[in-house]
Design a protein around this nucleic acid. Structure first.
Lengths: 243, 243
DNA sequence: TGTACATCAGTGAACGCGCGTTCACTGATGTAC
DNA sequence: TGTACATCAGTGAACGCGCGTTCACTGATGTAC
């Protein structure tokens, strides 16, 4: 029994060191990503920074793409956590759903501004010849969920008063966004789903334009503008705002 | 006089051949861009495709970055032309401004879907270490102008009936978007400028999400969804729609 | 119309670079008895 | 507690690759008289 424990501990010492270095490699890669972008990520450069010989990295990641995938997955996780935390805090503070929306979208933007290269990895131009790992869809959904949550909650409790929306061909539109509707809950009307997706596109657009440098000489105060945009969306969605 | 003409013609034969090859190089580079993306663009590969030796390209472009810049500038020009043409046609057809908006935004999307890598060049993640040529700002403005035109015209002629917009701190907001306001015309109120920029972000967002592959398993009918989004925007802007 | 010269497009070899990945190895750490 | 063996992290040299860019050159095209 004691011996068994010693064994486990011993083996897990090795494992712990291994996990630590695996993590450290990822962190250095993360820094490199921030400096050079995804295509500039080089195993040799990462190894150099760690004081290791390039081939040593192959004990931890089978190849460059695996490292990049780990990086992407990590970025997704970090984003999801960040948005979920903000959402949970706003929820616990019992803010009106419109204000929860403001908090959660601000968290999305803050993460993007804090980690522009990671944002580019997720929402920027796809890296040619590289296929993102399948696991990302789950984390992606977590982000979307956190953003949508205040809206869905307001809808469920009847506090949503959406402004009149253009009369699109409702059934065709519902068909177009069916996968999302099924994922969310069948009880949410197709039009609200479409509205949510519109808001989602809006968020990604306004954040990407800022992060990718398109506001230079255009929008002098990005946070203020983002706030305005987000509030406009809240109103479009019919979310109850404070004051 | 005749001799002078002969001289000019002769020299312009050479010049014409030169211009033609310069153009042909750009076209091949364009194809490569579509296959490999911006970072994968290689002088050697382009030369290979043209049946030339790599160093020969240096007679036409001083280096790789210059070729990429030409490519980018070309993409901007193509986009601007495409959107402007659509706008002019819609204007001549005397459609209500809301429908002009629909036409012009659809042209923006169509171009993006037709040339996804060029779209990525303009609105995707910035290529690290590469500074876009300054000339692009003018062409960028042409695109923005073409999109904004129906809205500004409707505003000028008093046919714009914007839905009530959240009461942001109006002066702070105006300050935030001042450069755009000054560029457009001083007579357009700051709130409308902000609204326009919001619509612009929305357009870029919804198109980028589609072009970069984020609608997979989410939005089954991107054109229909885009149409819906664009119409929602038209309404938000208060543009008069047909029917 | 014919000749001497200048221009310039394209060639071919070479440079130095950094990359991802492999492989046989050394030596430290952990395991079994 | 001590010894023989197994595991495995990290080394160092080497591979082949494609890249951007340079440079002296050849030979065709255009120019001047």
């Amino acid at each position: 029994m004691v011996q068994a424990r010693v064994m486990t501990t011993a083996s897990s010492v090795r494992e712990r060191v291994r996990a630590e270095l695996t993590r450290e490699i990822l962190e250095v890669a993360h820094v490199h990503l921030g400096r050079e972008g995804a295509t500039g990520l080089s195993l040799r450069a990462v190894a150099r920074d760690l004081g290791m010989v390039p081939s040593a990295l192959y004990r931890y990641y089978p190849n460059r793409d695996a490292l990049l995938s780990a990086l992407i997955l990590d970025a997704y996780g970090s984003l999801a956590r960040s948005v979920e935390d903000a959402g949970a805090a706003a929820h616990e503070a019992e803010l009106p759903e419109g204000e929860q929306w403001m908090v959660v979208t601000a968290a999305l933007r803050a993460w993007a501004v804090g980690f522009p290269h990671e944002w580019a990895l997720i929402f920027g131009s796809p890296v040619p010849g590289y296929e993102a790992p399948q696991d990302t869809v789950i984390v992606y959904a977590r982000v979307a969920e956190a953003i949508a949550h205040p809206v869905l909650e307001a809808h469920r409790s009847g506090r949503l008063t959406p402004s009149p929306v253009p009369r699109a061909d409702a059934s065709a539109l519902s068909d177009a966004v069916r996968p999302v509707a099924e994922f969310l809950v069948p009880t949410v009307p197709g039009e609200l789903v479409a509205l949510l997706l519109t808001a989602w596109s809006q968020l990604i657009g306004v954040i990407s334009l800022e992060v990718f440098g398109h506001w230079r000489n255009t929008v002098l105060d990005p946070p203020a503008f983002f706030d305005y945009t987000s509030r406009t969306m809240a109103q479009m969605l019919g979310l109850p705002l404070g004051r």
